[in-house]
């Protein structure tokens, strides 16, 4: 066969040789077919050691016990005993060397993972007591009232009455931003001066953070609770002026004419009053 015919064959063989030399240097020595054959066992054995040497971050609750035995003993008989400490406090890593302190998560989201009530038949979730997250003391972190390590009712931090004291702040709390309301007395006595703002506006809680606005109730029923003239005089009502609800502008909201923060003599809008036929 003539030389020029065989030359492409030499070229191809040359390329193959180059490839094989390159492969000899580039492919790691431990790469090859190991157990389970070519289909499932083609790999570099060094990678198994790489995966084994990843740092372990979660240490498990037994590593917490030696220093935090008191918490363990407190938790022992209560339902949260089954939860790993690191679930709520984050991985221990090399605590107490690094990190020196673990996070204490007081957000609602943490507790709601289990305690947002989901009534799911056939699931273990149905058996966990829970609350409606939108209804139950919104704005407050759960640990404010509940001890996360001893979550039963007997260890609640506040009784219902004590809780009301927290959520109802009192007039002085309002004064810092709403001094203008306090100043509206003017030359007339301010009969509502002794009423708590929160009686009509609801508990302040963490206003203005949460709730950003308190409700403004304009319905007649709120005013008529005190200002309904009763056919008999009782000592409680003796000094309070009242109206006959059926006779005095029925269907019209009181605040159309009356400013609840000022005396009745300082009516809001005399034009409105005259349009009703008053004087």
């Amino acid at each position: 066969m003539k030389n020029h015919v065989l030359r492409p064959l030499w070229v191809v063989l040359g390329l193959v040789a180059v490839l094989l030399v390159f492969r000899y240097f580039y492919v790691p020595g431990d790469f090859g077919i190991h157990e389970r054959g070519f289909t499932y066992g083609l790999y570099r054995t060094g990678t198994i050691e790489d995966w084994k040497s990843v740092t372990v971050k979660y240490q498990g609750r037994d590593s917490c016990k030696p220093c935090h035995q008191d918490v363990f003993d407190g938790m022992a008989k209560y339902p949260h005993m089954v939860i790993q400490c690191e679930n709520c406090h984050g991985p221990a890593l090399r605590h107490p060397t690094d990190p020196p302190k673990l996070a204490i998560d007081k957000t609602r989201a943490l507790c709601l993972r289990c305690h947002a009530k989901l009534q799911y038949p056939t699931s273990g979730r149905a058996g966990i007591t829970g609350i409606d997250p939108q209804a139950h003391n919104t704005g407050f972190g759960c640990p404010k009232c509940h001890d996360p390590h001893r979550p039963t009712v007997q260890f609640l931090r506040y009784s219902v009455d004590d809780w009301k004291k927290i959520t109802y702040r009192g007039r002085e709390y309002c004064r810092s931003c709403h001094q203008n309301r306090f100043d509206e007395e003017g030359s007339y006595p301010h009969p509502h001066a002794t009423i708590q703002c929160e009686n009509c506006h609801g508990p302040a809680m963490k206003h203005p953070t949460d709730p950003p606005r308190l409700p403004i109730d304009t319905k007649r029923e709120l005013c008529l609770a005190c200002h309904t003239r009763l056919p008999y005089s009782s000592t409680a009502y003796a000094g309070v002026k009242g109206v006959d609800p059926a006779g005095h502008n029925p269907g019209v909201e009181c605040v159309n004419c009356h400013n609840p923060h000022r005396s009745a003599l300082q009516l809001l809008n005399w034009t409105t009053v005259r349009s009703f036929g008053g004087s």
Binding site: F31, H34, T39, T47, D50, W51
Partner: peptide
């Protein structure tokens, strides 16, 4: 593991399927 063109993923002897990040 079957479709890997370069042999980066594999079934280890103890049954876990691993990926070689360098490969």
């Amino acid at each position: 593991v079957q479709v890997c063109p370069v042999g980066a993923t594999f079934k280890a002897p103890d049954g876990v399927v691993l990926v070689d990040r360098t490969w």
